[in-house]
Every structure is written in structure tokens, then in C-alpha cells.
Design a protein around this nucleic acid. Structure first.
Length: 532
RNA sequence: AGGGGCGUAGCUCAGUGGUAGAGCAGCGGCCUUUUAAGCCGAAGGUCGUGGGUUCGAUCCCCACCGCCCCUACCA
């Protein structure tokens, strides 16, 4: 099956045939190597030319050819392995005419193994003096342009492997992502948590408000939902005596795509028994500071035009945030007491909308039927969220929008819940878990009755039953790994930190061609061959 | 979903109402320490797709497709 670019594909196939005609295996099974290019570069960078000349360190090393410079009866190439380039020097006198002919048939992108020793060229570059050359795998399609790399964003996402080859930054992002996840595991493992995996396919998609994806199991003949959160299963485990659990895995939400949203995304969720949300505030601050330090070397992280310091947290209540970040020219800022008063949030929202309409701002969506707590949440998102640049713990969420949280003893309209904001992005969400089965069932029923696509159609009675068996006081938190990775890699689109972000599938060319001939309106000559 | 932008050689990009150019990659030749190697030569394009305006469209207009950005929902 040939691929575009066709001429180059065919050209390389021709070379492949020539190579095989000369008795070489283009796809051998193994090559014995002693070091990766990266290891050699690291180890011998300090070694000078004279030192190498004296020692002639023997090497066997393999990699992908990234550059190739032929000079008649000799040539240079760079091979790449483990993210580092190492130059090789192939000389007719040394390798012999048969191997040199092979060298001349190589293309960028081919994998080779070489044996020889290290030396430095005139210009001082560490290089392998090749005495043996082995083709390890023939590439039939070319690499991205070597100087500019691959910059077409769509191609970078669709053919991520090319992005990883051509762009060190892309490679670096995913190495760092792996490091972040490794450090997270280490952090929680060290604190006595156990890592678990809970269902991705769930009969009732609970634990968050979001539209789920639906799928179907044939043998059981049941519809299942891809999970929107692992929350309810993790808490079942706490009921079961796993007092500290965490899961790092995918959630799926059938909602919009943006620079901050991918339909499948990775969440860390963790739960610890005998704790409340105050404990998690402290733990979160420690976790983020530790992580930033481990991964970037500093708690101070550059993110676009901002510098955020994960060692400097502000804690602020949602109502305080609305008051503090109230637009300066939108009339007198509300105060916390006003927001707390019955009817207060609605009055303030209406005040905001009057201002928004005259200042070309998006007004709050229809307030009719919304509770005070819901309006408070909307006010926060509209007025304050994007301004929370420095690491912020935003607490005292309205109970109305926190169906899985305990309320505050002194004010049942507020939940023991906080979210973490950095650079205007929501990174985490935590609360003291509601463990009263009666109250939880009541809230679930209320949710189901209010309806909406983002709410389960039935109450998860199995979860209520689990709570009825008794759950210790527990605090839980979820952290968006993709966004966290964005922050720690200075990436400004979630697609930069997801290896294969969801894109519309490529339409086959036949399809567009068929569409063209249908809508074209000119009738082909009757009996003309070749058309389907 | 709404608004804006982009789509020209395999890649990175110029360009014009009279059917196109550069660099790199690829091909042929020369070159035994080069490194964005160099030099010589040849080749490569239904200018995203379809329709319209026009004597004539890659360029102007419309629709569609794809991607990106902003806004809306969400993490």
C-alpha cells in the first residue's frame, strides 16, 4: 500500500529493492549495542580529541538517521537515540566498498547500527569512526523538514510520531508528563495510599455533572456510560476499608473541545479517611510545591506572561473572590454579607448584567429558576475565575452546586469544598465527602428531578447502599493531570500535552472525489470507463 | 454552537485577475573531517473541494471540508 508522498515512497522502495538485491536484510531482528547515542554523548562530552585518539573507545550503537552528508568516498550522518544525536563517519577505505554502497543507499529516517570507535572531528564533534555498518530498518516515507521541523499543527497531532522526532519541545513535554505522573505516584505511595483502578464503563455515570458517552455491551445487552468520574467507586473502596486510595486514569465527557478541554482527559483522584477538606488544603499546597520543585527545579514556574509560585498560596472564599475581583467600573462592589443574604446573589447578578450589557460583556445566562448558590457560582466564574493567576485555594462553595460535599456546620448553605486555581485554570476540586446516606439520597433525588442532560437519569442506589454500610469521615480530591502538565510545561493548549488529542477523523480522498462528481452537474460521457 | 484566521511542491514559505516561485527534502553527477556541507544538472503543483462573476480565477464572491484562535459549557 503506497502512501503520499508517492514519488519518495516509490524511490525508497527502489532503494529497498537494491539493498535486498545486494544481499542485505532490510529488517533484521536484532542488533547488539553497548550504549545509546544519549549515553555516549553524556559520557564522552568531557573527553578531548587527544584522549579519544589514545583510548579509541570501542562502541556499538544504533539509531535513526536524522542527517546525511555524503562526500564522494566518505560521509557523515547523525543518528538519534534516546533523544540525543550522535554523529557517525563512514569512510570507503574503512568499511569497504560493499558496506559503502549500502551507506549510499540509506535515507533519512532509516535505522542503522554501527560498530567502531569514538573520535573527534576537526571541528571537535564527537563522532563514531565506523568500521561496520548495519541497516536495521528501512524507512519508506521521509522525515519532516530538517530545519524548520514539523510546524503544521494538525499534522503534529495526527502524526504525533513525526512531531516527537522533529520537535524536541514535543518530546520534552511528554517526558515531563511521564515524570509528573511518576512523582504523583511516589508522593501518594509514600503516604500510604494504594493505587486502584475502577470501572471506566458504568451503568450510571455519576460523580460529576457532565454529559456522558454511551456505549453498549452486547452479551449483557445493556447500555453503559463511559465514566465521567471515578468518584463514587473510589468512595465505595473507602467504605471497604481502603482508607487511602488514588486512581490516575481517564475520564470521558461528551462536551466541547477547547484549548483547556479534551473529551477524554486524565484525572488523579484520591481519598483519605478520617480527614476533612482542611487536611486536603494543606496536602494540596504541599503536593503542588513538591511537584513543581521536582519537575522544574523550582516552585516558581513560568507560564506564558505569568510567573506562578507554587510555594505561595492564597486562600479565599468564593464570596470574597467575587467581591475582590468585581470589575472596577461596574459600580460599587458587593460585600460578603450582601452575597450571603437571601436574594443577594440574584440582585448582584442583575446589577452585573446591567453593566455587562452597556460594556459589551457577556451577561450571566438566564437567572430564572437558579438558586442563590447557583448564581453565586456563576458570578464567581464570570467575575473572578480568570483572574486567579497565583495558586489559589478557593473555598466555601455553595451547597447547591456541591451535591457530594458535606455542608459547613455553621452555615448549611456552604459546602466544605474548595477548588484549586492557577493561571485562571481550574486544576483541582476537593471536599469533605458527604457520608450521610439519607442526605446523599435526598440530594441525588433532587438532582434527578431537576433533570438535564448533565445529570444521571436515575439515582445510584448501589452507592447509597454502600454509604448505608458506613463510610468514615473522608476527604477527597481530583486533579486534572493534563492541565497540571500544561502549567508545568508552559503549554497553552491541552492538545500539546495529550499525545493523541481527539480530532475529527481524516476523510478519505475517495469520498471528497465522489462528492465532487455528484454535485458537479456535468454528466460524464456515457460508457466512459474507469468511473464507478 | 457563535465570531475571527489559515489552507500554494513532500516540508517551511513567497507571490500575481492573463493557469506559479525560493530554500530544504527527493533524483542524476562531482567531492575521503562535513554539520542548515558545497558545486553542477534535471524533475516536481487540478494553488483545500465545489459553484459563481469574468474573455480569462490560484487571486474577487458564495458554499462546503479541515485545522487553529477567541467566546459559551465543563475539569
Amino acid at each position: 500500500m503506497p502512501f503520499e508522498p508517492l514519488d519518495q515512497y516509490l524511490q525508497r522502495q527502489k532503494k529497498l529493492a537494491e539493498i535486498e538485491a545486494r544481499g542485505y536484510d532490510a529488517y533484521p531482528h536484532r542488533f547488539d549495542w553497548t550504549a545509546t547515542p544519549a549515553e555516549l554523548v553524556e559520557k564522552y562530552t568531557p573527553a578531548g580529541a587527544a584522549e579519544l585518539e589514545a583510548a579509541k573507545p570501542p562502541v556499538r550503537v544504533a539509531g535513526r538517521i536524522l542527517t546525511l552528508r555524503l562526500h564522494g568516498k566518505a560521509g557523515f550522518a547523525h543518528i538519534s537515540g534516546s533523544g540525543q544525536r550522535l554523529q557517525i563517519y563512514v569512510k570507503l577505505d574503512i568499511v569497504g566498498s560493499r558496506a559503502f554502497e549500502l551507506f549510499r543507499l540509506l535515507d533519512l529516517g532509516d535505522f542503522v547500527g554501527v560498530a567502531g570507535h569514538l573520535f573527534r572531528t576537526k571541528t571537535g564533534e564527537l563522532t563514531v569512526w565506523v568500521s561496520e555498518l548495519t541497516l536495521l530498518s528501512k524507512a519508506l516515507l521521509p522525515l519532516p523538514e530538517k530545519w524548520h521541523g514539523l510546524s503544521d499543527v494538525e499534522l503534529r497531532y495526527r502524526q504525533r510520531y513525526l512531531d516527537l522526532i522533529a520537535n524536541d519541545r514535543a518530546r520534552g513535554i511528554f517526558l515531563r508528563r511521564a515524570q509528573i505522573i511518576r512523582e504523583l505516584r511516589r508522593f501518594f505511595d509514600a503516604r500510604g495510599y494504594i493505587e486502584v483502578e475502577t470501572p471506566m464503563m458504568q451503568p450510571i455515570a455519576g460523580g460529576a455533572t457532565a454529559r456522558p458517552f454511551v456505549t453498549h455491551h452486547n452479551t449483557l445487552d445493556v447500555d453503559l456510560y463511559l465514566r465521567i468520574a471515578p468518584e463514587l467507586y473510589l468512595k465505595r473502596l473507602v467504605v471497604g476499608g481502603l482508607d487511602r486510595v488514588y486512581e490516575i486514569n481517564r475520564n470521558f465527557r461528551n462536551e466541547g473541545i477547547s484549548t483547556a478541554h479534551n473529551p477524554e482527559f486524565t484525572m488523579l483522584e484520591f481519598y483519605q479517611a478520617y480527614s476533612d477538606y482542611h487536611d486536603l488544603m494543606a496536602l494540596s499546597e504541599e503536593l503542588f510545591a513538591h511537584l513543581a520543585k521536582q519537575v522544574t527545579g523550582s516552585t516558581i514556574v513560568k507560564y506564558g506572561e505569568y510567573e506562578v509560585d507554587f510555594a505561595m498560596w492564597q486562600r479565599i472564599s468564593m464570596r470574597e473572590a467575587i467581591c475582590r475581583y468585581w470589575p472596577a467600573d461596574a459600580g460599587p462592589a458587593p460585600n460578603v454579607a450582601e452575597l450571603a443574604a437571601p436574594g443577594g446573589p440574584r440582585a448582584i447578578a442583575e446589577r452585573y448584567n446591567v453593566w455587562a450589557q452597556t460594556h459589551n460583556r457577556e451577561p450571566l445566562p438566564d437567572l430564572a429558576g437558579q438558586t442563590g448558590g447557583e448564581i453565586t457560582g456563576l458570578l464567581f466564574e464570570t467575575v473572578a475565575e480568570s483572574q486567579l493567576i497565583q495558586p489559589t485555594i478557593l473555598y466555601d462553595f455553595p451547597t447547591d452546586i456541591s451535591p457530594l460535599s458535606k455542608c459547613r456546620k455553621d452555615d448549611p448553605s456552604l459546602a466544605e469544598r474548595f477548588e484549586i486555581f492557577v493561571a485562571g485554570m481550574e486544576l483541582g476540586n476537593a471536599f469533605s465527602e458527604l457520608n450521610d446516606p439519607t442526605e446523599q439520597e435526598r440530594r441525588f433525588r433532587q438532582q434527578v428531578e431537576s433533570g438535564g442532560e448533565e445529570v444521571p437519569r436515575e439515582v445510584d442506589m448501589d452507592y447509597i447502599r454502600a454509604l448505608a454500610h458506613g463510610m468514615p469521615p473522608t476527604a477527597g480530591e481530583g486533579i486534572g493531570i493534563d492541565r497540571l502538565t500544561m502549567l508545568l510545561t508552559d503549554s497553552h493548549s491541552i492538545r500539546e500535552v495529550i499525545l493523541f488529542p481527539l480530532l475529527r477523523p481524516e476523510t478519505p480522498q475517495e469520498e471528497t472525489a465522489a462528492g465532487a462528481s455528484n454535485s458537479g452537474g456535468h454528466s460524464p460521457e456515457p460508457g466512459s470507463g474507469g468511473q464507478k
